[in-house]
Write a protein that binds this DNA or RNA. Sequence first.
DNA 1: AGAAAGTACTGTGCCAATCA
DNA 2: TGATTGGCACAGTACTTTCT
Length: 385
Amino acid sequence: MAGEKKRDFGNVRKLASGRFQVRYRGPDGRLRPAPHTFDTKRAAQRWLKLKDAEIAQGDWFDPEAGACSFGEYAAEWVKDRDLTRKTRRTYEDLLRLHLNPTFGDMYLNAIKTADVRRWRAARLRRKKGKGQVPKAYRLMHAVLNTAVADKLIRENPCQIEGAGLEHSEERPVLSVAEVFKLADAIKPRYRALVLLATFGNMRWGELAGLRRRNLDLDKRTVRIRETVTDVGGLYQGKPKSKAGYRVVSLPELIMADLREHVETYAAPGPDGFVFVGVRGNQLRRGNFSKYWADACDAVGLEDVHLHDLRHTGNTYAAEAGASLRELMKRMGHSSSKAALIYLHAREEREREIADRLGERVTEELRGKRNDSDGGDDPPLPGAPV
DNA sequence: AGAAAGTACTGTGCCAATCA
DNA sequence: TGATTGGCACAGTACTTTCT
């Protein structure tokens, strides 16, 4: 008591109602009332003590800090990030369509894990847009992680195991015959596009952005240097990653078609696009998809996407014995994970061949035993002729 | 190394504008 | 006047990077 001033941390007072109110001073010096009143003075003092300890340990959160709506905070979050147009757009859509209808007006500190769980369950019950749920969840998680870092909320309410995971179905692999059937069926102007997507392992955006000077018919190579994306108007971009810049060599098989295509359909000059519309306009997904659908119909293929050609071509390359590194280079992948999928496919194929081989041998042995005649079956696959 | 998070791309459908 | 093109909203998928 030697003149030491007692810290004015807070006080308890009796209200006219007979209940007790607590007020405490936060680290910022402002006096705040407790969120509720107390039956007894004892309970009120106890609460004040706990609050004191919380502040002393640096665990205190400004209760008003989280009093910012999720919608506003998320909008700022997106704005502050250095995102590409496309991603920005995706995030804005996810917020508007999936998150804000539920959380937009809620205060950050009011969102509980149970709310998130309920939201997710409701969304997953819907017929459409199920696939957007994990994406929206991940975005919300990321936004709220920032809110935690900003000390606006104590912890992230997005704590649902596996909610951010997506599993996509395996895409089909076409046979060489099917690829050529498609190439025959599609408008002649896009025949080369089908072949190049397959045997050059190219993405749509890479095909749409391909310029004549990057297609070397003598060296049989295609250089991937720029891509086209299509969001609120077309714009030129760069490949997905560093590895996306690449040179892919092409099989002789398709060179005649490519040559003919360039002579007949490509835009003029080295900077001209290899693939253009009837009126010389740059290709757009939305417009191309009709021709693609028609070709698929004509051939009787269902649920085949243009992108599947890229995978198909890669599976061919894997089956032809390309190494992991070579596959990565062809596809323009920067990590081995994606390419490993195709090696998997190759292994399965080899197992299939081995199985068939085994069956044939068994059959043949059985046949030998049954009729003494050896028969004149064709040779086994891989057997010396 | 595998899971999780983060980012960027592809696919579909519809409607309006424009061109041949 | 029908085919082509542009624009947009929404859905779906592929890939890279970071975390554990």
